[in-house]
Design a protein around this nucleic acid. Structure first.
Length: 579
RNA sequence: GCCCCUGUAGCUCAAUGGAUAGAGCAACCGCCUCCUAAGCGGUAGGUUGAAGGUUCGACUCCUUCCUGGGGCACCA
């Protein structure tokens, strides 16, 4: 399959250049890219370009006149049915013969439909989830996971070889905090007085871990002043939960990068690199622009190592990278981790992060640039938080407070109304169908009640209908492979084909913009919404439909099934044969 | 206080600076004698938070306000 609007843009460019060569247009730099849109109104053709209006100033001519000149020089192409003038717009209609031929093209491509080689030979890495192993995966976290996973699939469709990576934050103070929380519950359950840490993890799962630890080790740890056994046990249990939850919604990471491997050497190497570039200094307090508003420095603490972030990017404060006690803050291992990533040679590194990490993302990117790496290879997708409402109340998604909704809990609630597979598809689709930038709200009650009326059914049912008709045809001994696409002349049939051939550009748009919701919307509002009315009206198997036409139509629906399956797969959703 | 994100139909959300701002849910009216009605057709619902500005053209870009979320820790 080809990327149609890119082809049309190229034809328009050729036309403009030819017009310039012939002296019909003055010399000027042809804009890049040339805008090509898909008009909402069918009367405006399949594709349109407003380029003539853009050129009015450059060419010092009226838009309709420019449009006419471009149209006159429009090169011949098997793609093009007609080129029409509409004021300043140039409207392009695709050739119906070419469209019909695409049915065979789609079937030939099969599972690889719309696979692009634009980036083949390149390696990409998608880092997502990367939750601390301090609690079960909660709903808020899952957003980044689903986005990351879908982006990985989209990048593969663009030719990249993609690795999914999980930055495993098993170092740092939060893990100590977890260990102390587990120990407190452990001691309490064994009848010892133990004070729960002030900032400890409040969730019930801590008690659960403590009691399973008692089962495993008895009271042998009562006198342990060392937190390590509690940390190690907690990490092991929780990471097991997390992986199981992620696997449940089809998210699987290829690599887990352990943060604690960085503390021995890598962080100090990065520190040395920063020092070498004169980006660090020692102070009791980092510089800040509005120093008059700064809190007074803590007299008890000594000098920390600060980094001149203000010199690297637009920010109002430097950052501390090594505490006064000599331990690194999380920034330093973060830098070290990214140095490691760059050294692994990826052409594209994608970090999917929650909005609370935006400053960190900027710091990392700026620092990598300062260390001589190509910043463009590192891209961040920042998603806003999910607001969870249940029983009319907002659930604050904090692991520490214990007030959060675990992914597994939501899936289990959905299971009361539907199957595991469909519950997973609902969660994935719902998450994917929103722009990462939107502050989305999920009403758990509505989501679990309305499982019978949602877009997931609508899209999947299109696939089910295709599968159903193929079964019916097989039962009747009808084989579409002999179908002649030349018989597909009905406007409804062509309407469906026009939609199917949009797939490559939708994939590219979603991948380039790092916005998987574009694919999700297209699947529903365009693909499925075009399919159903056509399927309803254009019957393949019917006493009044001649057998040759039946075979051609079966072929069309087979092609539709290929596209539907491909789209569902790119979203990590199932493509059921029956419902 | 400063920085980032956001505000679009009753609700949840779309709309590479392009032609009449679109879906789903909720509401209302119709449609199953041949491939599954989890479908189709139709009705209703909007000053795109507000005010200016740029542009041939603004939901989209700029300025100033306002709502909501996040960030400005020697936590991650």
């Amino acid at each position: 399959m080809i990327h149609i609007s890119a082809q049309i843009a190229a034809l328009v460019r050729t036309a403009i250049e030819a017009a310039q060569g012939a002296g019909d247009l003055p010399a000027f730099a042809v804009p890049d890219p040339i805008p090509v849109t898909r008009p909402k109104n069918e009367e405006h053709g399949d594709y349109a370009t407003p380029v003539a209006m853009q050129l009015a100033r450059l060419a010092k001519m009226a838009p309709p006149q420019i449009a006419e000149v471009i149209t006159n020089h429009f090169p011949a192409s098997e793609l093009i049915g007609s080129v029409e003038l509409a004021g300043g717009f140039i409207n392009v209609r695709l050739s119906e013969d070419w469209l019909r031929a695409q049915v065979d093209v789609i079937l030939a491509e099969g599972e690889q439909a719309a696979q692009s080689e634009t980036h083949s030979g390149k390696r990409a890495q998608v880092e997502c989830v990367s939750a601390n192993p301090t609690g079960p995966i909660h709903l808020g976290r899952i957003r980044g996971g689903v986005i990351g996973d879908a982006l990985a699939r989209l990048l593969r469709a663009q030719g990249y070889t993609v690795e999914m990576e999980y930055y495993y934050n098993n170092g740092g103070k939060q893990m100590e905090n977890l260990a102390a929380s587990i120990r407190a519950r452990y001691l309490q359950q064994l009848g010892h007085a133990a004070e729960f840490p002030e900032a400890g993890y409040q969730g019930d799962y801590i008690a659960e871990i403590a009691s399973s630890l008692i089962e495993a080790r008895g009271d042998s740890l009562v006198d342990s002043a060392d937190l390590e056994p509690f940390r190690a046990y907690g990490e092991q249990v929780i990471s097991g939960w997390q992986k199981a939850s992620l696997a449940r919604i089809n998210i699987e990471h290829d690599t887990f990068f352990n943060e604690d491997t960085l503390y021995e050497q890598a962080v100090w190497d990065v520190l040395a690199m920063l020092e070498q570039r004169n980006l660090t200094y020692k102070a009791v307090q980092p510089r800040r622009e509005d120093s008059d508003q700064a809190p007074p420095p803590d007299a008890d603490k000594g000098e920390a190592v600060c980094m001149r972030m203000m010199d690297l990017r637009d920010t109002v404060q430097d950052v501390i990278i090594v505490r006064s006690d000599g331990t690194p803050t999380y920034r330093l291992p973060d830098f070290a981790y990214h140095v490691d990533k760059f050294e692994r040679g990826f052409d594209l590194m994608l970090n999917v992060l929650g909005a609370d990490h935006i400053e960190e993302a900027k710091d990392v990117k700026a620092t990598m640039g300062a260390l001589g790496y190509d910043q463009e290879r590192l891209q961040h997708v920042i998603h806003q938080f999910l607001k969870v409402v249940q029983g009319g109340e907002v659930i604050r998604g904090s692991t520490r407070s214990g007030e959060y909704l675990a992914l597994d809990d939501l899936l289990d609630m959905l299971l009361e109304h539907t199957t595991e597979s469909f519950a997973v598809d609902v969660v994935r689709y719902f998450t994917l169908a929103h722009n990462p930038n939107t502050h989305m709200t999920i009403d758990v009650d509505a989501a679990t009640q309305q499982t019978n009326e949602n877009p997931v059914f609508y899209i999947q049912n299109a696939h089910v209908r295709c599968a159903g008709i193929a079964r019916e045809a097989a039962d009747r001994g009808l084989d579409h492979s002999a179908g002649d696409v030349a018989l597909l002349t009905d406007p409804q049939e062509l309407r469906l084909i026009r939609k199917l051939v949009e797939l490559p550009e939708i994939i590219q748009l979603a991948a380039d913009e790092l916005e998987p919701h574009r694919l999700a919307y297209w699947a529903q509002e365009d693909l499925a919404a075009t399919f159903h009315p056509v399927y309803d009206e254009v019957r393949a198997i019917h006493t009044e439909v001649p057998e040759a036409l039946t075979k051609a139509r079966l072929k069309l629906y087979a092609a539709a099934q290929v596209v539907l399956r491909r789209v569902l797969d790119l979203m990590g959703m199932s493509a059921p044969e029956r419902m």
